[in-house]
Design a protein around this nucleic acid. Structure first.
Lengths: 152, 152
DNA sequence: GCCTTTTTGGTCAGCTTGAGCATCGAATAT
DNA sequence: ATATTCGATGCTCAAGCTGACCAAAAAGGC
């Protein structure tokens, strides 16, 4: 449960890969797909989508490919997920912040909306640069990056 | 994306309803289903599952039904979701904490696992009692309930 | 000027997963 | 003991997502 889509995962992986190779002016979808062993055609669509939303710059032709449109530190994981999968809400009620149609049902949505906002805040505080920088799983005395308060 | 299952939603709603009616020794699945206008047979399955995991006590026969096995303050939203949908992970890699099979792919899983833990912490800090208490959507100067630190 | 490389867009089959329904079994009150 | 009420189990159907194929446009290199 509460899983991220494979598309979102692939998108994050691709952006991380781009952030790790700033020396390359552009990387093709196939290069990234081969590097991670993920389906190339699916990744291509994801990158196209991210290009449309403005996170990436595409360059067709030989030696073409994709490149980050901004600094990796300025791109949050939230943006990527949001652009790929659309706005996410914890509640099954697909409606944004309105109540569940006509039924007086979901009195739980409201507190869960707070949780939703908290999660969104956490994702917003994480940048692609953070993902790329995270390498050695041992010995990382980093300071607290985000401190999220949940006021129920 | 990142939605909760309808089952989990229904389960939370049912527990909230039980917490709001402590005077009743037991409430039938049909009563709760009618109160919220949700499919009765589906809710029955959910309540049965929660009974199996120990969150609820069932009482068959006439005037039977379900009741909370513990105080509503001692039941967290995390438990409910976990018992219904199983352990959730943000990453698509269904494997628990191991890496993605053989590929050196998911270097992003690790930081996302932190996010996952953060979300779990938030859900653990919310009890069924909190859900039931939350009534008037206006004027609730409540103190901060959970303060979650995310160390990336 | 032609050709290769790479993006772009549309379409479609296969599959996993969740939603919902019908039936069978158990327990209690009269 | 019987009938009613409720819980348990199994099954079917639909939807969303994944993944792939194909054709066309764009842009640089020879």
């Amino acid at each position: 449960m509460l899983k991220l889509t494979k598309k979102a995962d692939y998108g994050l992986m691709a952006l991380k890969y781009l952030a790790e190779h700033p020396e390359m002016p552009a990387l093709s979808a196939k290069d990234i797909a081969d590097a991670y062993g993920i389906p190339a055609q699916l990744l291509a669509k994801i990158l196209q989508r991210l290009t449309k939303t403005g996170l990436l710059r595409s360059h067709a032709g030989m030696n073409g490919g994709y490149a980050l449109s901004r600094d990796a530190r300025k791109i949050s994981a939230y943006e990527v997920i949001h652009d790929i999968d659309g706005p996410f809400f914890i509640t099954s009620c697909t409606k944004g912040s309105k109540s569940c149609e006509l039924t007086p049902s979901c009195t739980i949505k409201e507190p869960l909306a707070r949780v939703n906002d908290t999660i969104a805040g956490v994702l917003k505080s994480i940048s692609i640069h953070d993902l790329a920088e995270y390498e050695s799983p041992a010995a990382k005395p980093r300071e607290a990056h985000g401190l999220v308060s949940l006021t129920l």
